[in-house]
Design a protein around this nucleic acid. Structure first.
Lengths: 334, 334
DNA sequence: TTGTACGCGTTATCAT
DNA sequence: ATGATAACGCGTACAA
C-alpha cells in the first residue's frame, strides 16, 4: 500500500492537517514540528498524491495538446516549446495526435475533459464549431497554435502565412528569377494551404510576372512524395521554370531528389526555397534555403498564454510571430 | 460549476449509486431507469471525472514514457507505437524528455509517481540503480525499451545492437568492400555505442580484414554534425576507405554532405550504410541504405507489455526484435 | 431494483 | 500552533 499523509501524521504524532500545512507551507506550525515532520517524510519517502490534490483543488497541472500529424518533425519543435514552458510551470502535457480526423479529435477532447486538464492547446487544424462548442461548454481555457478562427473569439499564435509566402516569393524574384513555380501542398487547407498560395500569387502579380494555374501544382499533402510528384508535373507544365517555392521543406527535398533523378541540378539549373526550416533543411544537398517559423518559440508562447488564462483567468492577446528566411545554398542568383 | 454525478442523479430522481451502476454497467437497475438516466446524462452533457475515479480505483489510465532526446525523429517513431497501443487500451501517455540528465530523470520519475501513472516505459537510456530503486520502491510496473539492465530483473524490448552492427558490416563486406570505416557515435554509450562498435569489429575480424582504432572514429554523439566531423577525420586516417558504417542515419547524412563538399561521390567512390532507417533515409541523395529497427512495433510491444503487467499483474518476457537491412542506393558493389 | 453511507488522499474551515 | 472534520466526485458493500 502506498504511503499517504496519514502514515506521516501517525508516525510524527501530529494530525494530517499539520502535515498538509507543512508540505504546502501554509502558516500554522512551529519550527520544531516542521523539522520532525520533514524528517518523517524523508524517512518514509512520502510524496503527495496529486490525484487527490486535483480532486479538491480543481487543478490537475496537466494540459492537453491536440496536433494533427502533418510533418512529425514540425510538430516536434512545437511540442518541445510547449513542454519547456509547461514543465517550468510545474505541469505536464498530454499530446494527442488527431490525424486530422474529426471523430478522433472529439474523442480526444472528451478524454482531455474527463482527465480534467487545466487547458488545451489546439494546433495546426481549423477549429470547427463542434470543437469550439464543446470546449466553450466545458469552460476549458484554450489557445490556438499555427491556426486561427474567424468566427470564434479564441486567442492564437501563428505566423502570417500569406505574408511569409509573399516574402519567400519576393526573395526568389529579387534573386532575378522570372518564371517561378509553386509546390503548394493541399490548397484546401485553410491554414497552411490557401494563404501560402495567395501570398505566392500576390508577389508575382505585384512584380508583374505571369501566374496562372500552371504555375501552381498541388497534391494530397505536404510530404516528400508529394514534392516529387508535384515537381514532375510542374516541370512538365512549365519547362522553363527557374525557381520553385515549396510549401514545406519535405516537399522541397522531394523536389530536389526528383530533380536529381532527372539530371537537373540544384541550384545551377533550378532554385528552390522551402518552408518550415526543419532540421533536415541543413542536411540536404545542397543545404536548403527556407522560410523559418520560430516553431519552438511559438509553442512556448502558446503555453505561456494558456497558463496566463488558467492562472489569472483573464483574456490574452493573440500573437503574430515573425518569420525570416534562412539562406543556405538552394537558390542561386540569376 | 461542472456537472457531476449528483446533478444527474437529482435530475433523474435516482440515487448516485444507480447512476454509477449504469455508467459502469454493473448489474442492478431496470431497463426503465437506465433509459431515463441515459437521457439525462445526454441532456446534461455529463461525463465522469476521471480524477475522482482514479482516486478510488487506483488507476489513472495514464502511463509515463521517459526518453532522452537523442534523435527526435527516432524517438517519434517509438512514441507513435506506444501511443497506438495505449490509446487502444483507453489510456493516455505523458512523455518526458530527460535530455539524458540524471537529475531531470529523477524529477520526472517523481512527477510520474505523484501523478500516479499506472506504468512506465523507460527508453534508450541505462537504468541506473537510483532509478530502479525508486520505481521498485513505489511498485510501479515498468518495461525497458531499446535498453536493458544486466543487474535488475526488468523486462525489455530491443534489438540486438551488436548483431545488427555485425550484419551491417557483413553486408558491406559481401558487397566486396575490404577497407571499411565506422562512424561510431558515442562509444561510451552502453546501449547504442559500444555494442555497435563491437559488432563492427567482430565482423571485420571474422572476415580477416584489418581493424584498428584508426578505422573507428567517434565524437560527442550521433548527430548530423558529428557525422561530418567524424568523416573528415576518418578520410584523413584511412584515405583508401571504400565503405563506411555509420551508427545513425543522421551521421550517415552528415557524412554524405561532407563527402559531397570534398568532391567525393557516393556511392561511386565511397559507400555508406546507416542505422535506424528514419524517414530521412529515403530523402537523401542518394537514398540511404540503412539497418532498420522496427521502432514503431517496438513501441507497441513495450506498451503491450506494461499493460500486461498492469492488468494481470504478472511477469512478462523480454523481447529481442528482428532488425533488417533496407537497401537503397548508398552502397555499391565492388 | 434501489438507496445509504463509507472511503479514496487531500485541502480548507472551523474550533481549540 | 494544532486538531477534528467536512468537502472534492466517485465506486461499492451493505441495507432495504
Amino acid at each position: 500500500m502506498a504511503i499517504t499523509i496519514k502514515d506521516v501524521a501517525k508516525k510524527a504524532n501530529v494530525s494530517i492537517a499539520t502535515v498538509s500545512r507543512i508540505i504546502n507551507n501554509k502558516p500554522g506550525y512551529s519550527k520544531e514540528t516542521e523539522i520532525k515532520v520533514l524528517e518523517v517524510i524523508k524517512e518514509l519517502g512520502y510524496s503527495p498524491n496529486s490525484i487527490a490534490r486535483g480532486l479538491i483543488s480543481k487543478r490537475t497541472h496537466t494540459i492537453g495538446v491536440l496536433v494533427p500529424k502533418l510533418s512529425s518533425m514540425l510538430t516536434n519543435e512545437i511540442i518541445r516549446g510547449i513542454e519547456n514552458i509547461t514543465h517550468q510551470y510545474g505541469s505536464s502535457v498530454i499530446v494527442c495526435h488527431t490525424e486530422s480526423n474529426g471523430q478522433k479529435t472529439m474523442q480526444y477532447l472528451q478524454l482531455l475533459h474527463e482527465k480534467q486538464v487545466d487547458g488545451i492547446i489546439f494546433a495546426s487544424t481549423s477549429l470547427t464549431e463542434e470543437y469550439y462548442q464543446f470546449i466553450e461548454n466545458k469552460g476549458i481555457p484554450i489557445v490556438l497554435l499555427s491556426t486561427k478562427s474567424d468566427q470564434f473569439p479564441v486567442p492564437y499564435v501563428k505566423v502570417d502565412d500569406e505574408v511569409a509566402a509573399y516574402t519567400a516569393t519576393e526573395y526568389l524574384i529579387k534573386k532575378g528569377h522570372r518564371t517561378i513555380g509553386m509546390l503548394s501542398g493541399n490548397r484546401d487547407d485553410r491554414i497552411a494551404g490557401k494563404p501560402r498560395v495567395d501570398g505566392f500569387i500576390k508577389a508575382l502579380k505585384n512584380y508583374q510576372l505571369s501566374v496562372n494555374e500552371d504555375h501552381i501544382v498541388s497534391f494530397h499533402g505536404f510530404s516528400f512524395h508529394d514534392g516529387v510528384n508535384c515537381f514532375q508535373q510542374l516541370i512538365h507544365q512549365i519547362p522553363d521554370v527557374t525557381a520553385v517555392f515549396a510549401a514545406s521543406d519535405e516537399m522541397a527535398l522531394g523536389m530536389i531528389s526528383a530533380a536529381y533523378e532527372m539530371g537537373i541540378k540544384v541550384p545551377e539549373q533550378i532554385s528552390v526555397i522551402g518552408y518550415d526550416n526543419l532540421s533536415i533543411a541543413e542536411m540536404s544537398i545542397p543545404p536548403l534555403t527556407s522560410v523559418a517559423q520560430p516553431l519552438c518559440e511559438m509553442g512556448e508562447a502558446a503555453a505561456e498564454m494558456v497558463f496566463e488564462v488558467i492562472e489569472n483567468n483573464q483574456k490574452v492577446n493573440s500573437q503574430i510571430c515573425a518569420h525570416h528566411i534562412v539562406e543556405r545554398k538552394s537558390v542561386r542568383s540569376l
